[in-house]
Nucleic acid binder design. Structure first.
Lengths: 210, 210
DNA sequence: TTCCTCAGTGAACATGCGTACACTGAAATT
DNA sequence: AATTTCAGTGTACGCATGTTCACTGAGGAA
């Protein structure tokens, strides 16, 4: 047998430990909520002594912010990939509802973190999530603005509609996160409801006059 | 001088202490979140020794449930009173938006508690809030079902629409709670947005076909 | 080869926590 | 008047926490 793995450089090793801490925090907070987990618990789960934590983050608060950043990075990547799905062009609403459920299931913990800490994290974490969601709404607004019925709206109205959409999606995402494993019936129900809600909102679009 | 106040009965006194504990918990959790406050902090703020806590609640979890119950009781009472406002009959949407902002401002801490713990409390607290919100949606659905455009809908569709409404109201309520004191401009903005969102949804109603 | 850098260690600390226990004294009951 | 009930007290405990400090030893630079 030959040793295949090279000795990792110092940077690499540091990066790995950092990842281990982030993952430990994400996992622990998925059951108890980020606010209630301790620096020592996170370190223990990451396989590291409490003092080593400080080599990577100054405080739990800073860890929280890093977690927000990483979660949204994952989510944005996934959703951009999903937008390339050819189905999405054919029927935006039906495809979006299915994509939503699929994407959330694939990244359950990231969504759970965002949904939970949005309302309850430390002030800094809350604000960071709020900002990211606003960004998300603005992105969607740009997409919406190209739709036939919407071209003539004021940009404020488009953002309003986008906000309605995103907030409803966040709610349905929360439900998918809470959903017990292996319940395709619940999954189907959530997808169906999301689809109908989006239809209802879109019907509002069509009748809107600024 | 004559002693005006009668000596309170044992029951009365117990009730007062219970209230003191509930208020202490509500106030403390408005800054740090219910999950992070300790039995000792609550007792201290209520002016009582930690052990006395157990005469009223078996655990912090039970306190949390009592807080959910009391908050929703307050909220339901206020909203039912608001429904008697004659303006509400004339123009449901515009009046509702204003009532929403006013009611939330009057009971800031109760709304803050519900909004925050909805996503992040202990499992028991979360489920209790979820259940109360479902009840609330059902109540609204009954009101909506009497509207002219909606009479013919299936009851599932009516609940769907009611859910959309309530969830959006919860979101706007969160904003009112976070709103800094003495900012009538922010208040006006939130009212205006809530109004338009509700209009957009109502337009969807009108175009809906089951 | 020699020296330096620095990610991770391990012991020690003060503090706040939940809960058990025996208690007090006034209101309620007899 | 005598007795019981029970909301609230005070002490004491074992435990987990955040942070400090001096340390080790392997990777990287000289």
């Amino acid at each position: 047998m030959v040793a295949v793995s090279e000795t990792p450089s110092r940077q690499e090793q540091k990066g790995r430990t950092r990842e281990a801490i982030l993952n430990a925090a994400l996992e622990l907070s998925s059951t108890h909520g980020f606010a209630q987990i301790s620096l020592r618990q996170v370190s223990r789960q990451a396989g590291v002594v409490p003092t080593a934590f400080y080599r990577h983050f100054e405080s739990m608060d800073e860890l929280g912010l890093a977690l927000v950043e990483r979660s949204f990075l994952t989510l944005r990547t996934m959703i951009r990939e999903a937008q390339r799905d050819p189905q999405v062009f054919e029927n935006i609403i039906d495809a979006s509802a299915e994509v939503l459920v699929r994407v959330v299931k694939q990244n359950r913990m990231h969504f759970a973190f965002v949904a939970r800490e949005r309302a309850s994290g430390s002030a800094a974490v809350r604000e960071a999530i709020q900002r990211e969601l606003e960004l998300f709404i603005s992105e969607l607004a740009v997409v919406l603005a190209r739709l036939p019925n919407i071209e003539t709206w004021s940009s404020e109205d488009v953002k309003l509609a986008a906000g309605l959409f995103v907030r409803n999606m966040v709610y349905r995402a929360e439900q998918v996160v809470q959903m017990p494993e292996g319940r395709p019936d619940r999954e189907e129900e959530i997808t169906r409801k999301a689809r109908r809600e989006m239809r209802l909102i879109v019907l509002g679009f069509e009748a809107w006059e600024s």
